[in-house]
Amino acid sequence: MQRYVNIAYATLVYAFLYFPIVILIVFSFNDSTYSLAWHGFTWRWYEKLADNDVLIEVALNSVTIGVLAASLATVLGTLGAVALYHYDFLGKRLVNGLVFVLIMSPEIVMGLSLLTLFVTVQKVAALISESLDASLGFISVLLSHVTFCTPFVIVTVLSRINGFDRHLIEAAKDLGASEFYTFRKVILPLLMPAVVAGWLLSFTLSMDDVIITQFVSGPDYELLPLRIYSMVKRGITPEVNALSAIMFVATLVIVAIAQALLKENKQ
């Protein structure tokens, strides 16, 4: 009896998690603009999406920022995790503290603090020379995304380093390897699954971010979530359904890749 109650309850929660997404995907194929009644199957909204040059441009912006931010954050975060694990250095406690603060602080707080920084830099640049243009846009968005992704890479990589035998690093040095050689030949290969997981996590975080981007993107540079946000605020449009469906499928693919990597990692 208990077993069936359990299964029923779990099914209900899964339904709660998936039902809205399924509805959204189904209606992305509905041949009607406003009504939620079924008016037949259509690819119309996907076609309209394909013709929407602005949307494609911001989607490309998002992917560009996502890839660049994830890559930079992965490099920075992996080096940072190795540094935090392996070395004693001045400011180590500060770095640990800041990583914690960045993970815990709400996105909105991070967004406005970065905006304050960038605007100040902009003012200072204008004071130095009028030709110095430091207005908000690609660079400020990229720097911000790297900043909020890096702590997550650090945490992911650190949890893996903590799992492996400290003697491995000592063994490498004992056999004559320099710090860099040890990093390249021993530490990095062993960290690889965590590094890849960190990259994927960063990429999704970057693709998903609305709040921080809204603060630091400026009027001339837009990312996909921001565009969706403004479209959604105007109301329900099947075009957004189609876009959401595509994004959901893309997420599925990424999760599948991540799972496959994790599995390999375990073996």
Partner: peptide, 22 residues
Amino acid sequence: NPFRRVATGSIFWWLFIFALIP
């Protein structure tokens, strides 16, 4: 050594500039 300096320096300064200062 250079590797150590890059590893510790990059994360320290990044967080200093983009987390502490803001």
